[in-house]
Design a protein around this nucleic acid. Sequence first.
DNA 1: CTTTTATATCGTGTTATAAGATATAATCTT
DNA 2: AAGATTATATCTTATAACACGATATAAAAG
Lengths: 137, 137
Amino acid sequence: MFSPSKLNQYWTDIYFHLHYPHGEKITHQMVRILQLIDKKERVVVNDVATHLDISHNTASEHVKRMIQKNYIEKKRDQEDERKVILRLTDCGTIVLHENTSLDEEKLNHIFSSMDEVEKELISKAFKLLSERAKSCM
Amino acid sequence: MFSPSKLNQYWTDIYFHLHYPHGEKITHQMVRILQLIDKKERVVVNDVATHLDISHNTASEHVKRMIQKNYIEKKRDQEDERKVILRLTDCGTIVLHENTSLDEEKLNHIFSSMDEVEKELISKAFKLLSERAKSCM
DNA sequence: CTTTTATATCGTGTTATAAGATATAATCTT
DNA sequence: AAGATTATATCTTATAACACGATATAAAAG
């Protein structure tokens, strides 16, 4: 038996029990921007505005604040000098990880008590779903 | 072969491609509080303070604001009249869902192009991991 | 009846969020 | 080359979020 709402039950349970402890205080908008820069190629300021559905000037201010916090850095586009390409710093990568990923210590703990068949099952399932998600959307 | 960091790659890719569009503006702290109330039994104001590592008065103010927004509601504890038990409203449930779950339309779309073996694989894997996460932590 | 516990409120300060108006500079159009 | 468009940045202004110390209230425990 399968249903999307059941899958979401599992999904949110997994995150609730396995997420990192809440450390560095970071806003929701900033997490979203970090996610965008992490997952999409060549993100410019306007992409941030579009993705969050905010004005370009507000997006520009988010970027300014995030550079001040050392989460991201700017690089002028070589082909079009008006554009500014955004990239994660090491610090931003860590902050993003701690706010969206599963705690790898907890994962290790869980997997240490699993047999090979179970580990294989989980690994394959996540790989499959992530591939389909990427190609479908 | 399997590693927690690989699993996190899949995890974050899945969320990035399948999350709901960013609708209602909600803060990071409020999402965390909604998650806590949703997943834990009998959450009181002090649990919010402990979970987010903030002072009890700040937690109380979050609760007040979230009631104003109609995300949650209060109910006095029967056994101990000092305590206030927090529960999600229907509105809060929806907002939480849209900020932490996978878009069920997108999920349906992906699953419609999968065979039974693949669906079974994903369903089993998520079920297994969520059970282990719950029992282990 | 005093102490502890649980929550609420008041005062105050900082930061985040947002947008309109305006500016600058690169690129495209004609 | 001049004017239009595009991409970003800055300035101003406003609201809300966030946080905490101090203080208050009321129930429960001792």
